[in-house]
Design a protein around this nucleic acid. Structure first.
Length: 110
DNA sequence: CTCTTGACTGAGG
DNA sequence: GCCTCAGCCAAGA
């Protein structure tokens, strides 16, 4: 069994890595997947520490599909460029067709 | 231990 | 659909 040896942060990283290429998800979805739906903020908080890790943080946005965390990236538009590199259209920090590109970890659950 | 902050979300007007 | 308020939980000072 996969005991909870991993910290909350580590779990978030795992789910973030599960996000397929060209797809995006929300903090709340990840939090819910982890069983901590009310800890959506913690997910973003964890992402903050994801720097230096193989975590595609640019695929994680808020429920509106808005790149709220782009400010935390190195450049001002780095996050947007990364998404566009995956074929995702981003306009004014807003992901287009967000509901279509949205990848729900709960659907991929197990 | 207490207080503040935060890459959020849902509910109410 | 937009704006505002409150709740939520973990980490850092």
């Amino acid at each position: 069994m996969q005991k909870e040896t991993l910290n909350f942060f580590d779990r978030v990283y795992e789910v973030a890595r599960l996000v397929p290429f060209g797809r995006v998800t929300s903090y709340g979805a990840i939090a819910k997947y982890l069983g901590a739906a009310r800890s959506a903020r913690m997910v973003g908080y964890a992402m903050n520490s994801s720097h230096g890790k193989d975590v595609p943080a640019h695929r994680v946005v808020n429920r509106k599909g808005l790149l709220t965390g782009k400010h935390h990236f190195e450049g001002t538009n780095l996050m947007q460029q990364l998404l566009e590199s995956e074929g995702i259209i981003v306009i004014d920090n807003q992901i287009q067709d967000f509901d279509k590109l949205f990848w729900n970890p709960l659907d991929h659950l197990r």
